[in-house]
Amino acid sequence: MLDKNLYNTVLCQTFSPCGKYLIAGSIYGQLAVFDLDRVLNPILELFSAEYNKPKYIHELENEVQICSLLTSQKFLIVGTIGEITGWDWKSLVSNKFNKPSWIIKVPFKKSGLELWDVNSMWLSEDESKLYAGCGDNNIYSFSLEGGKLISVYEGHNDYIHCVHGKGKHLISAGEDGFVKLWDSRTPSAQNSMEPHNSKASRPDLGKWVGAVALGDDWIVCGGGPRLSLWHLRSLDAVTVFDIPDHGIHVAQFHEDCVVAGGSAKFLYQLTYSGEVKVELPISATTVYSAILRTTPNKLLTIAGSSPDIDLCTTFNYRDQVLHFRQ
């Protein structure tokens, strides 16, 4: 029998709105709840080998893969296969975990029985709309109050890896090699890019784009093509980052830097001009999730193809390793 403690993969993470907990989701349908107070400030008298393990591990029905996670003030939002669920934070950070507060079923074609992965989610700043990028090539927007389907954004011709947004604008990246820009008020893409047809191309790794993020004036993306920085208005590739990866799965902006990783030995922090500021060694052979915050304290956690999650409090080096196991 496969030992989940040894062969687990963590695809997604999020912090609780209070900042006291880290939640990580695994391919085996497990939600691990780490008590960050216990991890960051262990009491010497109560110190044990369990301090860097989850306070709770909750299991979803049918052990369905957890593909994506989001935090709202009221709920932990969990994207799985064919549905999105909302879990009350009080139940999640206790042993009373039972049934979700709400369930949104992702639409699927009546002619087929296949349910699609909810690979990526983004929540509007006012927390009224939830956007989900799915395995059927579509992005769906739902009302977070009531779960009503609002819009369907069609345009990709292969499954979506990543969806991100800023204000009324959305950006998506897919297996088809396209990065598409959307106005959330209209269902058709406003613009698109093909990094595999640019100077970022790496034909040996394919055209897929695994990660994309939207800034005020910039877009960062990568996948099979190299990690690259694009000017939002001109859609020109300004910087192609020279890092030794074999595919990008994480790309985001933080202050005046780009944070990125994937199939590589490090998580990178880079200047817009391409200088490597920080190389963080990682436990996983492939990074699928890196989340950071600056309040109530600085914290970066890195997860992927390993049951171990790296924790950094300065963004410059690895302080601790958390263990996704009981």
Rank of each mutant, 00 (worst) to 15 (best):
3 D>S: 14
10 V>F: 04
14 T>Q: 07
15 F>C: 09
22 L>G: 01
26 S>Q: 08
29 G>C: 05
31 L>D: 00
31 L>E: 04
33 V>K: 08
34 F>I: 02
38 R>H: 12
38 R>Y: 02
41 N>L: 10
42 P>L: 10
50 E>Y: 11
53 K>T: 13
55 K>G: 08
57 I>Y: 04
73 Q>E: 14
79 G>S: 09
84 I>K: 04
90 K>G: 02
97 F>L: 06
101 S>E: 14
102 W>M: 12
103 I>H: 09
105 K>D: 13
111 S>T: 15
113 L>Y: 10
125 E>S: 15
130 L>E: 05
130 L>T: 05
135 G>C: 08
136 D>W: 03
139 I>Q: 04
139 I>G: 03
141 S>R: 06
143 S>L: 15
145 E>T: 11
145 E>H: 12
146 G>F: 02
160 I>P: 01
160 I>L: 15
161 H>G: 08
163 V>A: 08
163 V>G: 02
166 K>D: 03
167 G>S: 07
168 K>P: 01
169 H>P: 00
171 I>H: 03
175 E>A: 13
175 E>M: 13
178 F>S: 13
181 L>Q: 09
181 L>Y: 11
181 L>C: 04
186 T>C: 07
188 S>W: 07
192 S>N: 11
195 P>Y: 03
197 N>Q: 14
199 K>Y: 00
208 W>Y: 15
212 V>K: 07
216 D>M: 05
219 I>Y: 02
219 I>C: 05
221 C>W: 03
222 G>Y: 11
224 G>C: 10
226 R>K: 15
228 S>A: 15
234 S>E: 15
234 S>V: 04
238 V>W: 02
242 D>I: 05
247 G>M: 12
251 A>M: 10
271 T>M: 06
272 Y>N: 05
276 V>K: 12
277 K>M: 14
287 V>E: 00
289 S>M: 00
290 A>F: 06
297 N>R: 15
299 L>D: 01
299 L>W: 04
301 T>D: 01
304 G>E: 06
311 L>K: 07
313 T>V: 09
315 F>P: 00
315 F>L: 12
316 N>F: 07
324 F>M: 09
